Computed example of a mutant assay.
Amino acid sequence: EERSSCSLVGTATLELAPLPLHQQIQEFAQFSLSTGYSQVQILPLFLSSGVHVNIDLPQEVAIAQKQLGTNIQLNLLPYLGSQLHRLVPLIATKMATVETKHWILVAHGSRHLGGNLPLEQLA
């Protein structure tokens, strides 16, 4: 039975963490399972589709899923930047409320062909 009255939220990082990402995911999934959940939704907080989104994250999620077995399902959602059309109004509203003459968009780019297009469109 799925729990719907509350949500668990956790964070994990691909780099600069004491544990590899797949282990961080496993720990959160095991905790989720112990509290009655049977699925974990994983939302990558990336604006562009680079190596991490296309290769690293799917590999780490697959490793975690293999080690967890079938008791809990890991669902890798589309990365945040794939929903840029929903972010643009939010960012535009924020920009309209701050008085300044200049804006700088800072983002981690990608070497993948077309990987920076969402950032260019946002800018």
Rank of each mutant, 00 (worst) to 15 (best):
N54W: 00
L113F: 12
H112Y: 13
Y79M: 01
P78H: 09
L90V: 15
V106K: 04
H112I: 01
L74K: 04
N71G: 10
M95F: 01
G69I: 02
N71I: 04
H85R: 07
A64H: 03
H102P: 00
A92D: 15
Q121F: 10
L68S: 08
N54A: 06
G114A: 08
N71T: 10
V88A: 09
P89S: 07
Q83F: 09
P89T: 08
T100Y: 04
V61Q: 06
E99C: 05
T100P: 03
L57A: 02
D56Q: 07
S110W: 10
W103F: 09
Q65E: 05
E120Y: 10
N116T: 07
Q65D: 03
R86S: 09
T70K: 10
P89G: 09
D56H: 06
R86V: 00
L90P: 00
G81P: 06
H108F: 11
V98K: 13
N54L: 12
D56E: 08
R86W: 05
H112A: 13
I104S: 11
R111D: 09
E60I: 03
Q59R: 12
T93I: 02
I55K: 14
P58S: 07
D56M: 05
G81H: 01
P118A: 10
T97G: 07
V61T: 08
H108P: 00
Y79I: 02
A92M: 13
S110G: 04
G115M: 05
P78A: 06
E60N: 06
H108G: 06
